[in-house]
Amino acid sequence: MEVSFNDVKYTYPGGVEALKGITFNVPTGQSLAIVGQNGAGKTTLVRHLNGIFQPTSGTVTVGDWTTAGHTIAELSARVGYVFQNPDEQLFARKVFDDVAFGPRNLKFDEEAVASAVTEALEETGLTKEAQSHPHHLSLSERKRVALAAVLAMKTPVVVLDEPTTGQDHNGVRMIASIVKKLREANRTVIAITHDMDFCAENFERVIVMAQGEVLADSSPENVFNLPEVLAKARVEAPQLERLASSLGWKSHPMNVDAFVDNLEAKSR
């Protein structure tokens, strides 16, 4: 499902202008990463997709709906939003019930609920914790419960707010493979992240934000080759891009294989 922002401005009740006219659209099945410093407006922006925020001016569309005409509950059937802080999202006494909450609300029948929950827990490595109390889990596990709760709703659009925060190596790999699966299923994925290596390896498009504005919008190869934009947004290029540029290479390797392929080509 396609989503779009059309000259979206948002001013907080206290007067802070968080978004200063944002326009872009994300076609069905695209994976987009949004990067930029803390306070750039990234979370404010994506919270418009499921109606938590409504624009002060401009419009946000999700498929054939304009968000202004729909409730959060209605939009939740189209946009699954995984909070940055899982404790804002989880409330049940059992992991299973937290994950089942969304599909039940979307009126899945109990059989479909059970299979959606089982699948989501498996994908997030939490099968064994189905009967645990979410608050007995670690922060990284609670974050994965919050992710499972959204995956189980099978929404055409999935929004992940800093999914890799606090995850160890295996956790990050698990999330990378979930993003890959969502892409393969032609679901639209939008993620906010501070992990540029994760971003370079798993997303086809990157938007850089600073102070409520879009500074750059292109492929990871292009975006991470804009040192001035990155500096303004307090973002660092991924590790291998920094290395290639320090070595004076003209290519922009976004992952280990691409870097070594380049090296091989140079040795011939």
């Binding site: 160890d168 290596d197 590790q239 291998l240 290395l243 294989d257 870097f259 090296l263």
Partner: peptide
């Protein structure tokens, strides 16, 4: 140990 090495380490190891 599920900690992971940097891309620099992995690239050098593969090279």
């Amino acid at each position: 140990w599920a900690i992971g090495t940097t891309r620099y380490t992995r690239a050098a190891a593969l090279a």
